[in-house]
Computed example of a mutant assay.
Amino acid sequence: MSANAPKNAKPKTARLKPVYYLSGTDDMLIELEAARLTAAALNPGMEAFNYEAFDGKSSSAAQVLNAAYTLPAFSDMRVVAVKAADAIKETEASPYVDYLKDPCATTCLIFTAVGKANDKSKLVQAAANTGYLKIMNRMNEDKLAVWAVNEAAKQGKKLSEAAAKLLITVTGTRLRDVKGELDKLMLYAGDKTTLDEKDIDECCSDCKEESGFALTDAISEKDVRRALAVFKKSADEEPLKLLGSAARQIRILLKLKALSKRRVSSNELAKACGIQPFLLSKYNLSAARFTERELITAVGRLRAADTDLKTGRAPQTIVLPRLIMELCGGGMKRR
């Protein structure tokens, strides 16, 4: 610990808290917020002198807190980042808990942990009690569409509401995927200032729907060989992304099954399912290959696979192939 660290100093960046514990299910949202806090805390050009990063699994509390008590150089504040904070052992938590009671005013200590916050953790409890805990879960489709419109505006582009919703339909609800496609769209647009659904179709439409349709079509036909081939072709995607794509397709098909019993127009049906009208016929064709019971069974198995991936209960390399074989096999036979 640095004996000269002025714990009660009043930095110019007083709007920042001295500690943040960022946790939640959206890794990109956490990453962006950590970057925003870091930029707000540090003077431009002084980052190399005032930024230190640690890993919660391999770094000790003594190492982290020694850095936290170190004076900033040529800046009002310094930033100490602790990634994978959920890996901090309970036996290492007490020094952090004590620090949160009286943190150094010239340091912004940022913990990040992807996943649901462990409310039994001493550090998480202390962060919550001191107002330093910030939960950053994945946004729903409506909030993501608003985020996309605002992000496009920051880059001098006007993204229509319909185009933003189509973008989310194409990418899914993972912010990292939405941002990646939006960045691609900005480059594609060039000098064009107003972007509509046609721009999304031309630039982004192939990133999610085709693989999702191909996988659900193969499963609906009980064609395990083709389904596994689609999975292998998409193996460079993150497992949760591919699982999320398949889950979204299945939920839409289940909703279509339920709504098809009512007399509603195609536009109303598309709106209720959260899809664009021009995709409806393709979804209807796929839905016709499933019974309602099969889709309900599929949702349950998708949830189980999601849990396996997030908890590490089963190796990532076998979760999706096993799921595909289950959905294509005897467990979902038609009545």
Rank of each mutant, 00 (worst) to 15 (best):
M1I: 10
N8V: 10
K10E: 11
K10F: 12
K12A: 11
A14W: 12
S23M: 02
I30K: 01
E31S: 14
E31H: 11
L32Q: 15
A35N: 10
A39C: 05
N43V: 07
G45T: 03
Y51W: 08
E52K: 15
A53Y: 01
A53E: 13
S59H: 07
A61Y: 07
A62P: 06
Q63A: 15
T70K: 14
P72S: 11
F74Q: 13
S75Q: 09
R78K: 15
A81Q: 12
K83D: 08
A84F: 15
A87Y: 05
V97M: 04
L100A: 08
T106M: 14
T106S: 12
V114E: 02
A117S: 13
K120D: 11
K120M: 04
K122D: 09
V124Y: 04
A127G: 08
A128E: 11
A128W: 03
Y132D: 07
M136H: 00
E141V: 01
L144C: 08
N150T: 11
A153K: 15
Q155R: 14
L167W: 10
L167N: 10
K184Q: 12
L185T: 04
M186W: 14
T194K: 15
K198R: 11
C204D: 05
K208M: 13
E209H: 06
S220K: 04
R226Q: 10
A227W: 04
F231A: 06
E238W: 01
L240S: 03
A246I: 13
A247K: 00
Q249H: 08
I252W: 06
L254C: 02
L256K: 05
V264T: 09
S265T: 15
S265L: 06
S266K: 12
G274M: 05
A288T: 01
R293L: 08
A298L: 03
A305G: 02
D308Y: 09
A314F: 11
I318K: 00
V319S: 01
V319M: 02
V319L: 02
L320F: 10
M325E: 04
E326L: 10
L327S: 04
G331K: 12
M332D: 01
M332Q: 06
K333G: 02
K333Y: 06
